[in-house]
Amino acid sequence: MKILIVYAHPEPRSLSGSLKEFAVDHLQRAGHQVQVSDLYAMQWKAQLDAADTLAPLVGAHYDATQDSRFAFDNQMQPADITAEQEKLRWADMVIFQFPLWWFSMPAIMKGWFDRVYANGFAYGVGEHNDRHWGDRYGEGNLTGKRAMLVVTTGGWESHYSPRGINGPIDDLLFPIQHGMLFYPGFSVLPPLVFYRVQKSAQARFNGWCDALAARLDTLADAEPIAFRRQNGGDYEIPALTLKDEFAAGESGFGVHVVRNSGDVSR
């Protein structure tokens, strides 16, 4: 497989850095091709702004949607954005590795999504009509590729349990996995989360590497999260609300995941 690791941590000697190096070595030994986008080492520009188009502005002032689209369509994006888009086109599998900071990814990685996910590349594709509302949520330019999160956090696993004080980890990661990965078409594998990483990290490192290796060895055939496809018949269009016959009487993030074979349109 061709595997891209998008990595965000400011300290190369951190646990995250060691896990990333282990992953690269393990994957290469298994015969995979690996590229790494180390965002801090690259000094990645996080903010999306008018500097992200090399073309004159479409209107009287900068509009992120319009100017992103014009730059993408006319090959007038900055070189760093184009390079990351080419890596995504190249990759069969993308691993996003980051520490959980304030219940989300570091700002530098969020900025990678803001800038690389240009209009016309990751969104704004496909026609809109009364049966099909754009190519997204299971469709799009990244369809056929897989993605997975590798996350480290200082909190206990119980803190992120269904009744934990921090909220369920699946809910915290939902905007990333569903909204940033499934939206443009990725098949999203269940995340690998390492808890309490600031406690006895050295003593537990080998076990974490074993867990990481086990996941890396199944990237090609692991079952992805069964998110509902937007245009598959489960949602009312154009309202994009889940039809009443699915997860009746329920709400929340969980209703957007298929639970069994009878819980989806045929």
Rank of each mutant, 00 (worst) to 15 (best):
R29Y: 04
I3H: 04
R228P: 10
W101I: 07
I169P: 08
T241E: 09
V6M: 12
G138Q: 08
W133E: 10
A213C: 10
V125F: 12
E139F: 11
V58W: 05
F113Q: 03
A239L: 10
A248G: 11
G120C: 06
A107H: 07
I108S: 05
I108M: 08
V24T: 10
E127T: 10
T143A: 09
L181F: 10
Q43T: 08
T241L: 13
A118R: 15
V36D: 03
L242K: 02
S261M: 03
A147C: 04
A122T: 04
L19D: 05
T153Y: 06
L19R: 05
E157F: 00
N166K: 13
A211I: 02
P191Q: 06
S18C: 07
D67A: 04
S14I: 11
W112Q: 01
G185C: 02
V193R: 04
A220S: 14
P12A: 09
P175Y: 02
F70R: 14
P191G: 01
F205P: 01
F103A: 14
V197L: 03
M42K: 15
E139Q: 09
L242V: 01
L240S: 09
V94S: 05
D67N: 02
L54G: 07
S200K: 14
M76A: 15
S200T: 05
D52C: 03
V264S: 12
W133C: 09
L216Q: 03
Q202L: 06
K87W: 04
G164L: 07
R69Y: 14
S187D: 13
E86R: 15
F194T: 01
V257E: 12
A118P: 01
I176Q: 01
L15Q: 07
A41P: 00
A64G: 00
G144M: 08
S265W: 11
G59K: 11
L88Q: 05
G31N: 04
S18Y: 13
K87V: 00
S37P: 01
G164R: 07
V150A: 04
E223S: 14
K199F: 06
K20Y: 05
A248Y: 12
A64F: 09
V6R: 08
G144Y: 13
G17A: 11
L216E: 03
E11D: 14
L192M: 08
I108W: 05
M148L: 09
C209E: 13
N260H: 15
M180L: 13
Q202D: 15
P56F: 12
N206E: 11
L57D: 00
V264A: 12
H26G: 01
V255D: 02
D114A: 06
P56H: 15
P238E: 10
T143N: 00
L173V: 06
V34P: 02
Q77G: 02
K145Y: 06
D92R: 10
M76N: 11
I95R: 01
Q28A: 09
R196D: 15
I169R: 05
A147T: 03
G164S: 11
L54H: 04
L88R: 04
F121W: 12
L242W: 05
L88D: 00
N141L: 09
D244W: 03
L88I: 01
P106G: 11
W102V: 08
P190F: 02
G138V: 12
